[in-house]
Structures are given as structure tokens and as C-alpha cells.
Simulated scan of single mutants.
Amino acid sequence: MPTPPAYLTIAADLRAAILSGELSAGSKLPSESGLMRQYDVSRTVVKWAVAVLKGEGIVEGRAGSGVYVRDTTRLVRHARARDLRTGDDATSPFARDAARAGQHGTWEHDSRHSKADERIAARLAVEPGSPVMRTTYRFLADDEPIQLSTSYEPLALTAGTPVEWPEEGAAVGVVARMDAIGVRVDEVVERVSLRAATTEEVDALDLPARTFVHTIERTYTAGGTPVETADIVLPGGRYDLVYRIPID
């Protein structure tokens, strides 16, 4: 296996120290000169390593002072547990994630009738141009933005039902809402990737420039038929993504 570039090794070591608490919130990172001596690298390599952590949003530079660990609370997104049928259809999976981190989760939303473009139509197994409910979300933990999501549901399934408008019914969350109309979700597929945040995402999530974000392409199905698909955006430095996979 190829040896990773030195700047990624340095970034990984600093990240591990931050996540373990060895470098706590507000702590100052070792100086560039110190890291150069420790790893026997040039100043440019050290700058690249620190730039990676800045891009993840877990450290910040302070003019004339140095680079410090940002004071942020990381939410843990347990993919397997978040959509289990708990009998509590009044609490969203995000609210539960925030509560486990000792924070209060809220969200802003906007739902409207729309048409599926080719990308969304393929994910929902419908014809392009089919009517869908498009809902955009901005999630906040203790009033700080921490997640974006845009979801799509085929109106052929939900139109005229009590769950047509995702935020207006008593049931909360895709699984509970579909249960309410007799559609039993039995699988969710998530495709996770990492990319640079767009300008709009930087503004909406109050992120540093040149930040990296996790993206999750999620689709719920019932009996093999897609019932909802969503594009989720998570700041890399604010979330841990946990997947528990049962082995039969």
C-alpha cells in the first residue's frame, strides 16, 4: 500500500488528537516550526496539513496568534438506529441525534409541489417530469446550522393523504409518515461521499471558506419501490457518521 503524503499524515495525527480530547476546544495547535521539526518536513507541507483541518471546520486561524481547535459539539448520526420503529412518531431522527449530544434540535423547512428532473426521477423510479413534493430543510443544533437536506416524494403516493405535506401531519420522519398511510418502509440505502462545499452551503451552514462536507444520497423503499429520496449535506467537522451492519 502506498505511503500517504506527509501532509495527510500530519493532518490525521492532529485530527486524532482533537477527536480524542488531547487537544481540547480552544487549544492552540503546535506551531508551524514545531511541526516542521517533529515531522521533518517543510513549512509548505505543514501549511497544507493545517489547511485540511481548516477545510473540515475543526480548527480556525486567529490573526497574529495561531491556529486553534474550534469549540464545536459533534453530533453522531447512527444510521441504523435513526429509522427504527420506536413507537414514538412525534420526534424526528435529527432531534434525537441532537438530544444525545446534549443539544436542542430544530429545523427550518419549505415544501412545494415540483417536477422530478432526470436525476431524481431515476432515484424514485418515476418518469422525468412526474409530480413530486420537494422539501428543503436547514437543521440547527442549539440555534447553530449543522445540516442541510432536500427531499423528494412522489405525489402519486402521497397526494391527498394526511402526509402529503411533510411538516403538517402528526407523524414525524419518513418511516412514521409512511406507516401512517399504510406504506411500510423496509429498506434505506445511503451513498456517502466527500466534496468541497458550495458557496450556498458555506453561507447556509456558516462554514469557513474552502470547507469540505459529507454528502449523503439517501433513498427509502417499500417492497422495492422508492418512496422518498434526499440529498443531505453535513459539515465534516461537526458530524460523526456511524453505520452498524448486522452480519447474518
Rank of each mutant, 00 (worst) to 15 (best):
A101G: 10
F139N: 02
I216C: 10
V163A: 15
E228D: 10
R96C: 04
R119A: 14
L124K: 08
S65K: 06
Y243E: 14
V183F: 14
K54Y: 13
E201V: 04
A12L: 15
E118P: 07
K28F: 04
A156Y: 11
P131R: 06
T3Q: 15
S114G: 08
G169T: 07
A81H: 01
E144S: 10
V52D: 03
V76L: 08
H104P: 03
V132R: 01
T158G: 12
A98Y: 01
M133T: 05
P235Q: 09
A11W: 09
A171M: 14
T198S: 14
V183R: 10
I232R: 04
A122H: 10
P93N: 12
H78S: 09
A99M: 10
V175K: 05
D71F: 00
V188Y: 04
E32V: 11
E217I: 12
R218W: 08
P128A: 09
I245Y: 13
G87H: 02
L75M: 04
A122N: 12
V69S: 01
E167A: 14
S193H: 13
R238N: 14
T158L: 09
D206R: 15
R195I: 08
A95M: 05
A49K: 05
G224I: 06
A197Y: 04
V189Q: 13
R210E: 12
T211E: 09
R177I: 05
E127M: 15
S114F: 06
A98E: 00
V126Y: 08
A125T: 08
R119V: 04
A63C: 02
A63D: 08
Y220A: 09
G26I: 00
L8Y: 12
